[in-house]
């Protein structure tokens, strides 16, 4: 199912949460809504779910306007940040809830519901735990129950609000794979909210990046990383070194840093990713203050001659035998230039 969001606006008591957001989500896609806290990503997700309603704009599922349709009518599966499991119900009862509450004529037979619950427990790898209560489960297991519960009603869309936010790092990684596997198995259009760019890039087919209630860019992980549409996207997604300076005569200059660019003259902000810095004999100077080896990559912290801290990632071959105190000469393989930002 295609989800179309058209010029959606939402105002909270004092600040605008969303200002004219438009977004198209393709059938079967796994899309991440990425942004810092307060960027409006959760509000957008809740508007898609029918848990909030916009002041202006439209939400359509395929060609149907659902802007003001109730959550119950939309057939979405929603996984809450704190899971919102029903404490007084067993895992199986939680999962069956969406089927149990259907009107008698639409409700599957008891045996059919039980079969579906077993199937979902198997899908999220919780077979045999149907009789437990949420309080008896670990955080990761609760997350899986929440996922199974949302999938029980065979939703047209699966929406997840910070699905891994409450989990520790190792569980988070394995559940990420799990979600990808479940997405592939069910093929349901999925949108999840996260503030963790690594998670978004790792998991999603496409990423929509929000900042202060507006979408800054929508694209594949590679697009948003390699061709950031704005200074915000560039600095939010991936590591960068930022230089505030000006372009004049084909060179960008900021203090002692000077880089060749192909751009009209004027004040600019430049971003260079640590791995886009390369050792070059005619480059600008930087003195190494710290070196850490992370597997095949050497991470270097350095200071430019005008005393700006920068970070550099070099491969082991490129780095050779560098040491703290040594001075490197650096050039940029790739530079992202934007009009000056504050």
């Amino acid at each position: 199912m295609t989800i179309s969001i058209r010029s959606v606006e939402k105002q909270f008591a004092r600040y605008p949460a969303l200002r004219g957001v438009s977004l198209e989500v393709q059938p079967g896609e796994l899309l991440a809504l990425l942004g810092p806290s307060g960027s409006g990503k959760t509000t957008l997700l809740r508007i898609i779910a029918g848990l909030e309603f916009p002041e202006a704009g439209q939400v359509a599922f395929d060609d149907q306007d659902v802007t003001f349709a109730s959550a119950a009518a939309r057939k979405v599966g929603f996984v809450f940040q704190q899971y919102a499991l029903f404490r007084h119900m067993t895992v199986a009862k939680n999962i069956a809830f969406g089927l149990d509450v259907r009107k008698a004529k639409d409700r599957p037979a008891r045996a059919e519901i039980n079969r579906r619950v077993e199937e979902l427990l198997g899908l999220v790898e919780l077979g045999g735990l149907g009789g437990r209560y949420p309080a008896q489960l670990s955080g990761g297991q609760r997350q899986r129950v929440a996922l199974a519960r949302a999938l029980a009603v065979s939703p047209q869309v699966l929406l997840l609000d910070e699905p891994f936010g409450a989990l520790d790092a190792t569980v988070r990684k394995s559940l990420r794979k799990e979600l990808r596997r479940i997405h592939n198995a069910t093929g349901v259009t999925t949108i999840f909210v996260t503030h963790d760019q690594e998670e978004a890039l790792d998991l999603a087919d496409r990423v929509a990046i929000l900042n202060q209630g507006s979408i800054e860019q929508v694209g594949t992980p590679q697009e948003v990383y390699d061709q950031p549409a704005s200074a915000f996207v560039c600095s939010f997604v991936g590591e960068t070194n930022r230089f505030d300076g000006a372009v004049s005569g084909g060179r960008f200059v900021c203090g002692s840093v000077s880089l060749a660019v192909d751009c009209a003259d004027g004040p600019k902000t430049a971003f260079v990713r640590p791995h886009d810095l390369v050792v070059a004999p005619d480059g600008f100077e930087a003195q190494i203050v710290r070196v850490t080896a992370q597997g095949p990559v050497i991470q270097i912290e350095a200071h430019t001659a005008s005393d700006q801290p920068i970070e550099i990632s070099l491969s082991r071959q490129e780095a050779g035998s560098i040491a703290v105190g040594q001075t490197l000469r650096l050039a940029a393989r790739k530079i992202h230039l934007f009009d000056p930002v504050d």
Binding site: E9, Q11, A49, G50, L51, E52, F53, E55, A56, G57, F61, Q64, D65, V66, T67, F68, A69, S70, A71, A73, R74, K103, D106
Partner: peptide, 25 residues
């Protein structure tokens, strides 16, 4: 109905300021 999702055309004009409460799910 369960088969047709109602649209909000008839509720209130788009862009109207929030009523005295937020619509709730």
């Amino acid at each position: 109905s369960t088969t047709h999702i109602s649209s909000g055309q008839d509720r209130r004009p788009r862009g109207a300021p929030p009523l005295f409460r937020r619509r709730s799910a």
